[in-house]
Amino acid sequence: MNHIILFDLDGTLTDPKEGITKSVQHALQAYGIDEPDLDKLCPFIGPPLSDSFKEYYGFSEAQAREAIDHFHEYFTKQGMFENKVYPGIREMLARLKDAGLTLAVATSKPEPFAIQILEHFDLLSYFTLVGGADMEEIRVRKGDVIAYTLDHLGTTPEESKVIMVGDRKHDIIGAHENQLPCAAVLYGYGSREEFTENGADYQIETVEELGDFLMKWGEV
């Protein structure tokens, strides 16, 4: 049986805080909203952007979609590269791939951006497939992205042993919608409370612990 690990991108493989929060800051300025404290914009890391603009700033659906365009004005020029790979991630991915496990990305970030980021940080070669949102954010919910990724891998949870690795509740919910377990990582932007409330199957403290866990999970 094939063993497949689906990785979230933001907050799981890389720390995108600077680029995402500055892109949100830029978008908000288009509406006369000045938010100098980037830490207050960290909740935007992970979930679909449209949901976050509506939840945290009361935007309508139309405003939220327009705000995404303003977000991309900054993000596509420089924000996507104001990012850093978590220490130990590269070594962990190499270890898992060398063990014969299939690695893929399932992210709510638009797929072309995810590919660019992974390529920029020399991580793309570790992954068989990168599954992401479409640019219109119609396919953006994590459950839909996971289903899309599995479909393009040509498999199902019944045919392969699959696990989702992420750092927010959306990863847990999306995994469970697809009858998959989720390993939630605490070094990202989620919390133990968030993971417990949403029924994370595993809670992982560090990148090193994640690598050891996934190696054991992948044993035939």
Rank of each mutant, 00 (worst) to 15 (best):
I68T: 02
P36S: 04
V162H: 03
L9H: 04
H176V: 02
I117Y: 06
Y86T: 07
Q25W: 07
F53Y: 13
F44K: 01
S108W: 10
V24F: 06
D34M: 11
E82G: 11
E158G: 15
T156N: 05
G166N: 04
T155H: 08
T76K: 07
P47R: 05
H120R: 14
Y126H: 15
A106D: 01
E18L: 14
N2S: 12
A94M: 12
E159C: 09
D122H: 13
P16K: 04
L49A: 00
G32H: 09
E119I: 14
H152C: 01
L129E: 03
D144P: 03
E55K: 12
S23H: 06
V130W: 06
H176W: 04
S60P: 03
Q78R: 12
G11E: 03
A147H: 08
L124G: 15
K216N: 11
T102I: 13
F81R: 08
I68F: 04
K54F: 02
G100V: 12
K84D: 09
A114G: 11
L38M: 07
R139H: 10
L93F: 13
P48F: 05
P87H: 07
Q29T: 15
I5S: 07
N83T: 14
N198Q: 09
G174Q: 03
I172L: 00
F195V: 02
